[in-house]
Design a protein around this nucleic acid. Structure first.
Length: 219
DNA sequence: ATTTAGATCCTCT
DNA sequence: GAGGATCTAAATG
């Protein structure tokens, strides 16, 4: 029985646009302090391409205590706190010193669903709702700022594996504009979000409305 | 189905 | 002192 292969430094050492597409279908793994393993297949990402990106925390080359991780080597985790209650997790990419990252927005839970339910903690939650948004995903996988700046290539508490559900063909992935941005001019319109077409595990803003029964998408 | 308001606190100006 | 890479519950058509 072989260990699943992890994504290495070289995998992360490229532009955010390329990486955002490549992370779809990979497995995000979180090992809790007590050893419990939680994981999910990434189904939605957003690219924050660099200092020229007005929606990026590193726009204009800003470097602050908060976004310092974005300037680290590719494969660094950038975890920040927002809206007074939520965390968001990014994978830093490109060259060290040049801030670019991919926001992990949603995942299909694979391991530790029971534990995720407890961590999300609002009664019974559908599997499709456990990690269907950046804040939800971090809550379900207990990702917070203590993990900011860690190295996803070598960490034993948070990392990425090659195997998810196998390669997803380009035709199975939809591109669209990013979500929740402020006044960022033309950057708001650029299609820098990727998600698995028709997946019920993506965030609300990406969900395709069903022509039938007005119901939710399945499986 | 869609809209709304409120929660809530860290970060930067 | 303002606002944010969000989420939920409640209200409304």
């Amino acid at each position: 029985m072989r260990m699943p292969e992890r994504l290495d430094r070289k995998f992360f050492a490229r532009g955010a646009i390329e990486l955002a597409a490549e992370l779809i279908g990979r497995r995000l793994v979180r090992v809790l302090p007590r050893g419990d393993r939680l994981s999910g297949v990434i189904v939605e990402t957003e690219a924050y391409v660099g200092v020229q990106d007005r929606a990026s925390h590193a726009y204009g080359g800003r470097c602050t205590p908060r976004n310092r991780s974005m300037y680290g080597p590719p494969g660094t985790a950038y975890v920040y706190f927002t809206y007074g209650m939520h965390h968001c997790m990014n994978v830093v990419c490109g060259k060290e010193g040049e801030p670019a990252a991919v926001l992990i927005r949603a995942a299909k839970p694979i391991e530790g669903l029971g534990h995720m339910q407890v961590l999300r903690g609002r009664g019974t939650i559908e599997p499709t709702e456990l990690c269907s948004g950046p804040g939800k995903l971090c809550q379900a996988m207990q990702i917070d700022r203590t993990l900011d700046g860690i190295d996803l290539v070598n960490s034993s508490e948070l990392f990425l594996e090659i195997e998810g559900e196998g390669p997803i063909s380009a035709i199975g992935i939809t591109r669209g504009p990013r979500i929740g941005l402020g006044d960022v001019g033309s950057w708001a319109k650029r299609r820098l979000r990727w998600y698995v077409s028709d997946s019920p595990y993506v965030s609300g803003g990406s969900r395709k409305r069903s022509p039938f029964r007005g119901g939710r998408n399945r499986g």
